[in-house]
Structures are given as C-alpha cells and as structure tokens.
Design a protein around this nucleic acid. Structure first.
Lengths: 350, 350
DNA sequence: AACGAGTCGTGAATCGATTCACGAGCGTTT
DNA sequence: AAACGCTCGTGAATCGATTCACGACTCGTT
C-alpha cells in the first residue's frame, strides 16, 4: 500500500466523481446537482452555472447504473440485428444511431449472427440493461422473449418486417411492391422463365408475393420457379448458381429475382465465372441496393428501400415522437436499374 | 384498476422480479439467492437447485444496474468503430462478439461515423455504463478521453493500430508488411509508376511505409506518387479516379495501391467506366480483402488481415486471458491475388 | 405592515444486487 | 462428552442518482 494521503498521483484511484463530489465543490446539496442535470429549470441560473462548472472541472460523467436503478430505465436503446455482414443492417444502424444521438440517446448494437440462442441472450441482456426500447431487424420470427419483455414494459419496433397479421409495431418498406417492381421489370424485358431465390422469411415471402402478382398481372404468360435457401449470403448465392448450372439449358431461367443483394452478388459471380452472360443469357435483379451493387462485376440492378430512414424512424417511434401508423407506406421501394437487367437484344441503340 | 389479486393477466405490472421475489419463492434469504448466482459453490447443491428453480419460474433476469452499482463494473465490453460502413469493422465486431459471448460477456457496439464529437460522447457513455473494457478500432488518433478513462480504471485495446511509440495496448496486423507485399507484387509485374491513395492515419501511413520499402528494395527504379484523401470510402475513390483521368496520359500511374478496399472499389469503378483497362493499363491492389472484393467489376487483388481474429484477440486481452505482447506478429497479412493485378502483357498463356 | 403565492434549495428515502461479518448447526478429534 | 473447526445461511450496510415533501426566502398585493 502506498501512502494513504496521496490521492493525487496514485494509479487507479480517483474512481469517477459522484454527485456528492460535485455538490461539495459547488457548495450545494446533492439534490441540487441532480436537478441541475435532470430539470435545469428548477434550479436558478446562478447555481446552475456553478454546478456545471464544478462538474466540468471534476470531469463528472455520472453513473448510469445508479441512475437506472432509480428511474428504472436507461438512456440506451437496443438494436438487434441478425447479421452484421449485410450492409443493409449497417445502414439501418447508422440511421438509428444518428437519430438517437440527436435526442441524447445511445444505441447498443447487438449482432445475433443468425443464432437464435444469441438472439435470446441479447434480449435478456437488453432487459438487464433496462434499455428504454428495442429495435429489432431480425430475419426470422419475433422471438417470444421480445413479447415477454414488452409485457414487462419495454417497447420494441420491428424493422423490415411488414406489419402483417401480427400486432407488433413494425415499419418497413413495401416488400411486396418491391418484388412486384423487380418482376415487372424483368417481364417488361420479355423475360418469361423467372426464378426467385430467397430464404423463407416473412419479409422475403412478401417480395416473392410481389413477384407472383407481377406475373399474374402480366399480359404474356410466364413461369416461376422458387429456390429456397437457408441464409441469404453471397456464399449461398454461389452455391445456388452451381446447382443452376448443372441443369440442361432448356430448364435455365432467363430472369432471376434474388431475395437480397448478397445472394444476388454470389449468384452473379457464380454465373459469370461459368461463362453465363448477364444480362444477355439471364437478367438478374437484387434487393436492398447495397453500396457494392454498383461495383459488381456487372453492376447490379436492385430494389432500394431507404434503410437509414427506416432505422431513424424506428428510433423516433420508440421515443414516442412519431406514430407508427403515420409511417406506413412512407418507405416506397425504388428500382435502381443497372446492367444486370438490360433487355436482351431489343434495346434501342445508344 | 383491476382486481388487486390478479397478477396473471395484468398488462404492464409485474415489473421484473427481484432477488427478493426469488428469495421469497425459494424460502431463503436474498443473500442466498445472490450467492447462488455469483458463487455457486458457497451454497449447498440442494438450496442451489431450489433457488434456480424459483428463478426460472419467475423469469428472473436480474438488474444489471443494481449489480453494477454495487460491484462497480458491468459485464459489457465496449467496441468503438469509426465507420460502420466498412465491412472490416463488421468482421472485427463479429470476432469480438463471438469471443465475448464465449465468456458470458456482451459487446456494445458504438459507431462514431468518423465524428470526433460522437466518439467522445460514446466514450463518456461507455464510462457511464462502466463497461469493463473498451476495444477501439479508430481511424484517427487515440482520443484523450480514452486515456482519462484508463486512468480511472477502464482498460482499452486498440485494434488495427500498430503498437508504435505510444504505449497503449494495441494489436494489429503488420500494416507495413502488407504495404510491402502489395507494392512488391506490382513491382514484380514490371510496374514502375506507382501511386498510393489513402488517408492520413497512422495505420495507413504504415502501409505507405511498406510501399516505400518495397520500392527502395527493388532492383529497378520506380516512382511513387501519393494522393491523400479525407476518408477512405468508395465515393472518395471515385473522386480520386476523376482527378486522375484529368491528367495527361504520360502522368498516369501503372500501378496503384489503395489504403483500403472501399477506396479501391471506388477507384476501380471510376477507371473502368472511363474506359481505362484494369489491369492492362493499370494494376490495382486494395487492402482488407473485404468480401465484396471478389465480386467487383474486376475481382480485386487485396491484402488480407485476419480481422475477426483481431477482434477476438482484443477481447481476450481485455479479459486478461491473453497477453498483448504474445500477440504481436501473430496477424500476418496475406496477399490475395485476383484480377486487378495480373501482369500486363507478359503473362504465360493459360 | 402583514399575508399569500410562488421560487428554489435541501434532507432523507429509495431503487436491487452484492458482500461483509456473524452465528447456527453439525461432524470430528481427543 | 467437551471443545474445536467447517460449512453454509442470514441480516444489514452499501453503491450513486433521483425525487418527494418540506421549508426558507422573496416579492407583490391589499
């Protein structure tokens, strides 16, 4: 042990200053210090200045644990994503964080990596952290834990999942319409043997439903084949391309809609490497319009949702400054046409 | 109010069960419940079972705020990244999270988005959360706040920043060697007018130093031009390509090393669109080997570090189960040769 | 000049988990 | 059989910020 009266240079001491320290320095009570931060109007300008100055000099940061213990919830919001590898989630996270920061809140990002177990663990963790709300951008269904949490007072908002028959607050782009746009685009180019590749997830199913509607609405008849995948990653996309290449040429689709861009990119790569010409032999439309769609071996046509806006909106809903209902239909998908979907041969000359 | 004796269906009540509730149900004291979770050996197997059963039935989650208030730190680790848009950070985060999860810890990811102000805000937030350690993967310098935090007892580890003259714990791949590999590769192909594009950040400067060393070590003379950029994004990469295209052909480089893959992808896109042939006219090497490098319009040659391993290692260091010193030199870069860097004309026939 | 209304600061109780210090209960040794 | 040592459960204090309830004080009105 070192000298007991040497708090100055000691190595680890000076554990964070408390309201008590600030109060002593400012010559006021602890209550006043607290009010200075939580209800500035309640304390006179003069004292307020003094308290803030003292806090600043001491580097007072506050102990959120103590705060939370008292008030029952924290300034943090939880964001649960299922796959950090997908740039869409990065976009949603960025939008959510910017919005939260604008309101003095913070976002804790947790990545479950498609694991249900970790998803559960993180939800429990969020609860133990008493986050004031959770934004969930899950691929799979709503975990039961989230419902329990809501019953206990912590709200959540689903992002990217349509507000379907379930009664959970949710915002998302119009996936059905996005699928419709993608397929209509292919059909308008004369594509007739369509293929949809995607995972069995609610929002992906909506995209598929849109594809179906487009085909139904088409003047010309067209076929649709569906390839289900486990997860929608580029690697799986490559695998799908391999199975596609094994079949006789007659069975080959002339238009593909992928459940997301990662899948599309993998597919595209696999096809190109095998000598399939895109878009001449087959047109391809992705989904999400991630940044890298534009840099692909053949720039990828894709359907875009305003992901950052979705993330921001979810935060506003949790914070109670925006109504979920008002937001429905505000996130229209948009088809971004690049090179994987140019008409086969009938394009007008440049 | 509903019937006072109907806790079953009430809508929002039953605020999280506490140790007291569990204790009552198990017929023991609160202390025993706590010991059951924190020091299982201290409580007899019989009681332990009873307590755990009671906790389970009640759905006891524990209040981390109370816990933290008492013990002074939380189970969470903080991860501070400067740009969520870069897939490298997603990889580091994934590695860190997996490792943390394996030890019953959690990772709070905060994205400062290159903003110094938000970086500071998040560090303060981490402090108020009493995270037990921070992993920082910053682009810029070590913020002063981190040092203050360490003085107050919260350790941190830098990732991706070389353990240079500063004395901060840091792990990273060998950026200097990576730069050397990239440039050597270009020189071996006969490239003589090299260009390095990258931001002014410590770890990028190391990559540049490696490039310089390769040139110095080269038998043939070669020139090096340096283009500094603010941030290393694809968008900036495109801008750089435009400025490059404005110059007379004689001043055009025949080999480019980019500070990271985002920048490289933007550059590549800009060049290709303008009709520059890659790699015939100019060879290009990126850095980081992000997943999308393989899907680029011309598959991108890149230098790879084991990012996930870096993230995992950082967590292990914070947890005290691995020594920082032991890790130096364990993350060797590796050149992944794809198509943006094939020799110009002298390649052997396939 | 006195009284009511309003402003603003304070003491003390509170949130829930942890942990210290104590002691009851039981087995072992001599 | 007495005394000692262990194991294991418990009461109570504790962490730091918040907030209620109270009261001191100021100021304007009659």
């Amino acid at each position: 042990m070192t000298s007991p009266s040497a708090p100055r240079r000691s190595k680890v001491v000076s554990s964070a200053p408390t309201v008590g320290d600030v109060a002593a320095r400012a010559g006021v009570s602890r209550a006043t210090v607290s009010y200075t931060f939580t209800q500035p109007d309640r304390v006179s300008p003069d004292l307020r200045r003094r308290v803030l100055a003292a806090a600043d000099e001491l580097g007072y940061v506050g102990n959120d644990a103590a705060r939370r213990l008292r008030v029952g919830h924290s300034l943090a919001l939880g964001l649960l994503v299922s796959s950090a590898g997908n740039p869409v989630y990065a976009e949603i996270a960025a939008g959510a964080e910017a919005e939260a920061a604008a309101h003095g809140r913070f976002v804790l990002v947790a990545n479950s990596d498609e694991s249900l177990e970790r998803e559960r663990a993180y939800i429990n963790f969020f609860e133990s952290q008493q986050v004031s709300g959770i934004v969930a951008a899950p691929v799979a269904d709503v975990p039961a834990e989230l419902l329990g949490l809501r019953r206990r007072g912590t709200p959540f908002v689903l992002v990217g999942v349509a507000p379907g028959p379930h009664s959970y607050p949710a915002i998302s782009g119009d996936n059905e319409r996005g699928g419709y746009l993608a397929a209509s685009h292919l059909l308008a180019q004369g594509r007739r043997r369509l293929l949809f590749a995607g995972g069995a997830h609610p929002h992906i199913d909506l995209r598929l439903a849109g594809v179906r509607r487009a085909i139904a609405a088409s003047a010309e008849p067209a076929s649709l084949e569906i390839v289900r995948v486990r997860v929608q990653t580029a690697q799986v996309g490559e695998e799908v391309s391999r199975t596609l290449l094994e079949r006789p040429e007659t069975g080959f689709p002339d238009g593909i809609v992928a459940g997301n861009d990662l899948l599309a990119l993998g597919l595209l790569h696999g096809l190109i490497v095998a000598g399939v010409r895109v878009p001449q032999d087959v047109s391809l439309v992705g989904y999400d319009d991630i940044e890298f769609a534009d840099f692909a071996i053949v720039p990828l046509t894709s359907v875009r949702h305003p992901s950052a806006a979705l993330g921001a909106s979810a935060v506003r809903i949790l914070l109670g400054i925006e109504d979920e209902q008002d937001m429905q239909g505000r996130f229209e998908p948009e088809l971004v046409i690049r090179s994987t979907s140019l008409p086969a041969a009938s394009s007008a000359p440049a």
